[in-house]
Amino acid sequence: MKPYILLMLALLGAQLSLAQNNRSKAEVFIQIEDQGNFTVYLDDEFVGSANGRFRFYDVYNTRPTLSILQGNKRIFSTKIDLQLDQRLILNYSLRRGLQFYKELSIYKDRQYALNDFDDYSNNFNTGIVPPTKPRPTENSKAFNDLSILIKKESFDDDKIKLIQAYVAYNDLSTIQVAILLKSIINDDKKLSLAKSLTPAISDIQNYYTLKESFTFISTKDNFINFLNSRPKPRAEQGSSLAADFEQLKSAVKREAFDDDKTKLIQAAFQNKSLSTGHMDVLLRLYTFEDKALICAKWAYRYVNDQQNYFTLKDVFKYKTNQDALLDFISKR
């Protein structure tokens, strides 16, 4: 009898162990954008990180408490809702708080399918097994609510107050700002608003395109001059404009005067770096070579492949301009 009981206990233990291993679970990954000493808690489990990325595996509670500490001070705490067999990826910053980034299925074809943070591993990132479509962000709903409230306001100042209250806790894209500026009648107030929104823009590399949102040439010039004089944040330096280059090229092509082309290019360089190949295309849009040469000299310090800059010699037809560019490069 005793051996039988021991056998039954052993089988029961094995079944419980198997059940535990087969339980559905979730994962929670968090990226903190700010610099500092942060610790993240998910219920009673905590994780530290040197690179701002915090990973929680094997999460069984579908409504855990997420807490963030800076040093010994708790700066954020909330309940989050999880879907089993899903990895929830969140972003946090002191300014914007907690934001949804992405949700991915942990398993594909009964195999673990994810990389070490925010995408599928190579074997599963294919057209045969497509990634899960992220759910809409709260920001889009909040922006729609903002647009509805603005339509109810009659005066520019009241509309601007609403927008400024919104950006205290939300970011905006350049396209969203363009929509908001259409609701403002006075060009000077448009300009003031566009300038004040700069810190809240999620795609600052495209912000120069708002030039077309203004009615008067003087306001357009004022806006571009503001972007050109704006300090370049460290986080923006060295990143590539490749994805937005066609948009820049089209904007430069629309300008009738070479000086205005240069201002647009300078505004783009304030937020992203270009390559020599990009400059080759842009300089060929100029009417006068001496204006193109001025732009080429200005842009040299910002390109990400200065070793190739000498090839821009072929952009110029006149030998005096070719020599001037090469002399300029040799003295750097």
Rank of each mutant, 00 (worst) to 15 (best):
303 V>H: 05
276 T>R: 06
258 D>S: 02
312 L>I: 10
272 K>G: 13
280 D>F: 10
283 L>F: 10
302 Y>A: 11
282 L>R: 02
292 A>E: 01
305 D>R: 04
294 I>D: 12
258 D>F: 06
293 L>Q: 07
275 S>L: 10
268 A>L: 10
306 Q>I: 11
249 K>R: 11
276 T>L: 06
314 D>Q: 15
251 A>H: 04
268 A>Y: 04
301 R>K: 15
301 R>H: 13
251 A>V: 00
305 D>F: 03
286 Y>P: 09
292 A>P: 09
301 R>T: 13
286 Y>T: 08
253 K>H: 06
290 D>Y: 14
291 K>I: 00
256 A>N: 09
281 V>F: 05
305 D>I: 06
251 A>S: 14
255 E>C: 12
295 C>Q: 15
304 N>H: 11
277 G>V: 01
305 D>Q: 04
249 K>W: 06
303 V>G: 02
285 L>R: 00
254 R>Y: 03
255 E>D: 04
306 Q>M: 08
276 T>Q: 07
321 N>C: 09
298 W>C: 01
296 A>P: 08
308 N>M: 06
305 D>G: 03
316 F>K: 09
297 K>M: 13
291 K>A: 15
260 D>W: 01
273 S>M: 06
286 Y>Q: 06
267 A>C: 01
309 Y>N: 10
283 L>R: 05
276 T>P: 02
294 I>N: 11
320 T>A: 11
300 Y>M: 05
308 N>P: 01
280 D>W: 02
270 Q>H: 06
256 A>P: 00
292 A>W: 01
314 D>G: 12
291 K>W: 00
314 D>S: 15
318 Y>M: 11
287 T>F: 12
321 N>F: 15
274 L>T: 03
321 N>W: 07
272 K>C: 03
270 Q>F: 00
317 K>W: 02
313 K>T: 13
302 Y>I: 05
318 Y>R: 15
268 A>P: 05
281 V>G: 01
254 R>F: 02
275 S>C: 05
266 Q>M: 14
304 N>W: 12
293 L>M: 14
274 L>K: 01
272 K>A: 15
283 L>A: 07
278 H>F: 12
290 D>V: 04
304 N>D: 08
298 W>K: 09
288 F>T: 03
257 F>W: 12
311 T>G: 02
294 I>S: 12
310 F>R: 09
319 K>T: 09
288 F>R: 12
303 V>D: 07
277 G>M: 01
276 T>F: 05
263 K>M: 11
293 L>S: 08
258 D>T: 02
319 K>W: 00
313 K>F: 13
275 S>W: 04
257 F>A: 09
273 S>I: 03
302 Y>G: 10
269 F>Q: 14
291 K>N: 14
270 Q>I: 01
263 K>N: 14
267 A>D: 01
307 Q>D: 04
317 K>D: 10
295 C>T: 15
253 K>Y: 04
257 F>E: 10
268 A>N: 13
318 Y>F: 15
314 D>R: 15
281 V>R: 12
320 T>H: 06
